[in-house]
Design a protein around this nucleic acid. Structure first.
Length: 759
DNA sequence: GCCGGGCTAATTTTT
DNA sequence: TTAGCCCGGC
């Protein structure tokens, strides 16, 4: 243990060895926060202050949880399997499975991912005849999730107007439907677990007595409900060790509440506040840029990163004529970096929004440079996988209407929309599941439905003795999925994915320590969780910790695997291993680091994004996002922007981002003449200087109209500052121009009045 | 049930 | 520009 402590710097070591009290660790980017977190756990266990069972460590992503597990296992000669290290959702899932009865859930309750949830809402709207113009399912989904993330049930939501009242009704209706079908959405996992602990004193006290140490990663990303959940588990005696960085809070838009950091400090009277400011990642100029930029934010707890790695290279800034030229320059730069012996996988290309990747990909393809785009469809989200999982879900829980509808006619069984509508009516009036409504339907439709039910029931009974992988094989075969994709022209990849699903099940069982020959539907005890009922039976004075009995705390490998599929979603993309350039949004780059980083598209309106200015605190969140981007780079950082960009099918004329102006000039090296502003020659959208002025709208000459202005021209205004002409309308005295003044906004100015100086 | 034309909207996203 | 969605026609 000592050797791990010795390898830490002083603040890190202080944090790791804090007494068992609440602590807030402000961990700057690249300051070794994961290291501190895992060493803290190891230290608590090694010094006998905590048992592995007595620690709860919570993260946001599966990746972070896995990382923590691996590092911990490397430090201590213990198995981390039984430990409560996981994501908020994963841990809540675990708790709800163990106490499904107390939580009023079926033993094999299933988890809806976002797409499933939206589907469930659409189904509800159809059933209730909701006008989806006035109440778009997307908005209902947003409404429900935000309410749940605040810890509010439908009756708790304050009704402010009629529209709002409808949303509340739909929320209640949606929850009722989920309850009927035995499914829970992501936010429900949290809320249900929170309510369970709040209502069940015995259970609450049990977990409070167990988890003397609660460690939280990325604390700045917690939402209101997660904070309250932690608070509940902490009780009065347990110590919360929260690690976070308010400067990297970039998820306010999805409910994250940075305010939790200040609230934690206040409400828990935190006396141990430690700042980790030594950065082990980036060279000096890069850090200087990050520090100077983030200083412009008013609301922050205050930190300043430093390094002893030396100044390093200056940050390179490039101004391109067009987005295509920006991409072309980038590709050339990458080529020379690779020619010098650099790895492509060490280089990241970042952008604010996904749409920006297109033009870059185009240039990369043209030059034959391998690349990988992050984001997109994940393994368990693929259609064929979702289909197979739906069959499995029906086996686990026949009343899952979402799963029923997904596969009742896939592969096609002649059960069309009409039949399903009739079936839906029967189910609605009888208040039963679609499956149970099938018996009431006669005729051809009825018999086809019976056949389908027979298939599901047959699979359920005949596979009772089969282990999970074999069950999946059977399902893929008997459902007709395999044959369906064999007949499809491009079904080979889908078949490959279905085979991969079987492998995923094998891997899952191995990871969970479930025997490969345990029948998929047999009860499996969840490691040392007190069982439903057992707690009550154990009553007072009995140590329930080891009471995991044969009865209650059992789930089935199938249900567990389905939960895993919803929560883990799998890798974004295949193609690992190859040395490829990494393309991603700034958001998805959080937590990663690269030797070289290209931050592209640094233009007003794009980054900071124009929509952000409307939201309170929006600009500061954009700035934190830029801070995240800068601090991803270890050795070399490029910043680039373009004078013109194709956006929504139109050429937009932008200004360089204010964020570039906020950086220390002495740390920058301009690759193009500094702040050149506009060039005299017109370049078309492909980035090539036009040999002749192209005809048609958008070309400068056709818009001049004797105003002396061109589109794309830089001008200066006494009040608004520097701007770019975006549009010109009318002629003579009526002529007016739309000008993008960047920070001052986009204005229409009458040219006869406005005093504009061409730059 | 499937295909294609027309319409619309267009940050960021993990679980 | 383009991707996703809905509706009408076969």
């Amino acid at each position: 243990m000592q050797r791990f402590l010795d390898s830490l710097n002083e603040p890190q070591r202080n944090a790791v060895t804090l007494p068992a009290q609440h602590a807030l660790i402000l961990a700057g980017a690249g300051s070794g926060k994961t290291r501190v977190l895992t060493t803290r756990i190891a230290w608590l266990i090694a010094t006998g202050q905590a048992s592995p069972q007595g620690v709860l460590a919570v993260t946001f992503t599966n990746k972070a949880a896995r990382e923590m597990n691996t590092r911990l296992a490397a430090m201590l000669p213990i198995s981390t399997r039984g430990m409560w290290i996981g994501t908020f959702h994963g841990l809540c899932n675990r708790m709800l499975r163990a106490h499904h009865r107390d939580a009023a859930l079926p033993q094999t309750f299933q988890i809806l991912d976002s797409a499933d949830q939206l589907g469930a809402i659409k189904r509800m709207c159809k059933r209730l005849g909701v006008d989806d113009e006035r109440y778009p399912p997307r908005n209902i989904q947003y409404f429900v999730n935000s309410a749940k993330e605040q810890g509010l049930r439908a009756p708790d939501v304050e009704v402010v107007d009629d529209i709002n009242r409808h949303y509340v009704e739909l929320y209640a209706e949606y929850d009722a439907q989920c309850q009927r079908e035995g499914v829970v959405d992501f936010a429900e996992l949290l809320l249900r677990s929170f309510e369970l602990l709040g209502r069940n004193q015995l259970l609450r006290e049990h977990y409070q007595a167990r988890f003397r140490h609660i460690l939280v990663d990325e604390f700045q990303d917690t939402n209101v409900l997660q904070y309250r959940w932690l608070k509940l588990l902490a009780g009065t005696d347990n110590a919360i060790f929260a690690v976070g960085d308010d400067d990297q809070s970039i998820y306010a838009f999805r409910g994250a509440n940075v305010g939790n950091m200040a609230a934690f400090e206040r409400e828990f009277q935190v006396r141990n506040l430690i700042k980790l400011e030594q950065n082990y990642r980036s060279h000096g100029h890069i850090l200087d840029c990050a520090n100077r930029l983030i200083r412009n934010n008013e609301s922050r707890l205050g930190k300043n990163l430093w390094t002893d790695a030396g100044e390093g290279e200056p940050v390179r800034v490039y101004e391109a004529m067009s987005d295509a030229l920006e991409a072309r320059w980038l590709v050339e730069e990458v080529r020379s970096l690779v020619a010098e012996g650099g790895m492509r996988s060490d280089i990241a290309v970042l952008y604010r929004s996904n749409a920006q990747s297109r033009v870059i990909e185009h240039a990369l393809v043209a030059q034959g440079i391998p690349y990988r785009v992050y984001g997109g469809l994940r393994f368990f989200e693929r259609a064929e996988i979702k289909h197979a999982l739906a069959y499995l879900r029906l086996i686990a829980n026949p009343h899952d209407d979402g799963a029923f509808l997904r596969v009742v006619n896939f592969p096609a069984r002649g059960i069309g929309a009409r039949s399903l509508e009739a079936l839906g009516d029967v189910a609605a009036s009888a208040g039963c599941s679609l499956r149970d409504a099938c018996a009431s339907l006669g005729g051809a439709a009825g018999s086809r439905l019976s056949t389908f039910i027979g298939l599901i029931d047959g699979l359920a009974t005949e596979t009772r003795e089969l282990p999970l992988p074999a069950l999946i094989e059977q399902v893929v075969q008997r459902s007709g999925l395999r044959q369906h994709y064999e007949n499809e022209r491009e079904g080979e990849e889908r078949l490959e994915n279905l085979r991969e699903l079987v492998n995923a099940a094998v891997a899952f069982l191995a990871e969970e320590g479930i025997g490969q020959d345990v029948p998929a539907n047999a009860g499996v005890a969840i490691a040392d969780v007190p069982a439903d009922g057992l707690l009550a039976a154990a009553g007072d004075g009995v140590d329930v910790l080891d009471a995991a009995g044969p009865d209650g705390a059992r789930s089935t490998p199938l249900a567990e695997f389905l939960g895993h599929a919803s929560l883990a979603a799998g890798e974004n993309q295949a193609g690992e291993g190859a040395d490829a350039l990494q393309l991603m949004t700034v958001h998805s780059a959080k937590g990663l680091e690269f030797r070289v980083v290209f931050m592209t598209g640094l233009e007003e309106g794009l980054f900071p994004h124009e929509n952000s200015s409307a939201e309170p605190g929006g600009l500061e969140e954009e700035r934190r996002l830029m801070y995240v981007a800068i601090t991803r780079a270890r050795e070399r950082l490029y910043l680039s922007y373009s004078q013109t960009r194709m956006l929504h099918g139109q050429t937009r004329y932008g200004l360089k981002s204010r964020f570039i102006d906020e950086l220390p000039p002495e740390s920058l090296k301009w690759l193009t003449p500094r702040g050149t502003g506009r060039m005299g020659t017109w370049h078309d959208a492909t980035g090539w200087p036009a040999r002749s002025v192209p005809a048609g709208s958008g070309s400068p000459a056709t818009r001049d109209r004797g105003t002396g202005l061109r589109i794309g021209q830089a001008v200066e205004h006494a009040r608004f500052g520097e701007g770019v002409v975006m549009e010109i309308e009318g002629r003579g005295d009526d002529a007016r121009a739309q000008i993008n003044f960047g920070p001052s906004g986009i204005k229409w100015l009458a040219l006869s009045v406005a005093k504009l100086t061409p730059l």
